[in-house]
């Protein structure tokens, strides 16, 4: 149902983002979705003349994904957010809040990921 979406690998992410920047797209945000099996869907949304263009990568929780903040500085907040709330290991962020942009040290790790009652009990 989402138009203009391209499925790419995480290795293609920086190259495709660079292309977006070269075509004068504005970075809008990312959307991270926990698929419930340890995998995450990450959508990168770009806009030009009010038309959205989207990139989708798949990654496992904890897997390293390169930061696009060297290309789009404004991605830095949402990348820190994904790292803290979903456990996506975004590397090379222009500003790294060290896992504490939103969460305090004693907070539940990755609170926005899908977690079963059994898993929560183990913690």
């Amino acid at each position: 149902m989402i138009e203009n979406i391209a499925e790419i690998t995480k290795d293609q992410l920086l190259g495709e983002t660079q292309k977006m920047s070269g075509q004068n797209y504005r970075f809008v945000t990312t959307s991270c979705v926990d698929l419930g099996d340890g995998n995450l869907d990450v959508l990168y949304h770009f806009d030009k003349d009010a038309k959205l263009q989207n990139l989708r990568i798949k990654a496992k929780r904890g897997e390293e994904v390169p930061s696009i903040s060297k290309i789009y500085l404004c991605a830095v907040l949402v990348e820190n957010e994904m790292k803290e709330l979903f456990g996506l290991n975004v590397t090379g962020m222009a500003i790294d809040y060290g896992g504490h942009m939103l969460l305090t040290p004693e907070a539940l790790k990755n609170p926005q990921s899908k977690i079963t009652i059994e898993q929560r009990g183990e913690k």
């Binding site: 809008v28 959307s31 949304h45 404004c74 907040l77 949402v78």
Partner: peptide, 8 residues
């Protein structure tokens, strides 16, 4: 997922 204007 909600991306609000102030966040941007």
């Amino acid at each position: 997922r909600v991306r609000t204007p102030t966040f941007a």
